[in-house]
Simulated scan of single mutants.
Amino acid sequence: MTDTRTAVLAAVDALVAAFGRHDTKAYFDAFSPAASFIFYNLDRTLQNRAEYEAEWALWETRDGFEVRGCRSTKRNVQLLGDVAIFTHAVETELSISGQAMTNYERETIVFARQTDGRWLAVHEHLSAMPS
């Protein structure tokens, strides 16, 4: 189980690091093409990775969105066979239209072990941190 937990956390760390440096290719490669996404600041569920990639591109072009850093704390992994549920608190430094800001949020990411042994994210749910 420790090896499995280590593998899941390695997948988490790669995903968070790619997000934190605004490396869209590495970030989106950490998700299954069929992954779904629920974000508190959107009025709909993104049903797959392609929808999220399109939304991200819109944020970049319309809003000047850029991730400048990301920190993950209060991390927890629940293992359920070939599925892992990862929860954490996330602090994101970003820029919108050139204005720096920091978001404090909670996030759940569900990972599934692929047939080749890799762990890919299959669902992400982001919530605002309660005040």
Rank of each mutant, 00 (worst) to 15 (best):
R5L: 14
A100Y: 13
L126V: 15
M1T: 13
S97G: 04
F19T: 04
V83L: 13
S131M: 06
G69C: 08
Q114H: 05
F37H: 07
A57H: 07
V12S: 08
D23Y: 08
F65S: 03
A84P: 03
R113M: 04
T6V: 08
V16C: 09
L120W: 07
A112I: 00
G117M: 08
L58E: 12
S32W: 11
R68H: 12
E124I: 01
E91H: 04
L94H: 08
I85G: 07
Y52K: 05
V8M: 07
R5Y: 10
R71N: 07
F31K: 06
T24K: 11
A26E: 12
Q47W: 00
N48I: 13
T108S: 14
H123N: 07
V122A: 04
I96Q: 10
F28E: 02
T6K: 04
H123T: 00
I96M: 14
D63H: 11
V110Y: 01
W59F: 13
T4S: 05
D23H: 09
D63A: 12
F28N: 02
T108V: 11
A50H: 06
E55Q: 14
Y27K: 01
G69R: 02
A26G: 09
T6D: 11
W59N: 07
N48M: 10
R75Q: 11
G81L: 05
T24V: 12
E51I: 10
S131K: 11
R106I: 03
S36E: 09
E66P: 01
V90C: 08
R75H: 04
T2H: 06
D116C: 05
A26T: 11
A11C: 09
T45C: 05
V83Y: 02
V12K: 07
A17W: 00
A30K: 00
T87L: 06
T61H: 05
T73G: 04
D29G: 01
M101N: 09
S95M: 10
F31G: 04
L120D: 06
R118C: 05
T61G: 03
A7F: 04
T108F: 01
H22E: 07
F28K: 02
F19I: 00
R118A: 13
E66C: 09
R5T: 14
T24D: 11
S32G: 08
Q78A: 14
A128N: 10
P33H: 07
S72Q: 13
Y104Q: 12
S97L: 07
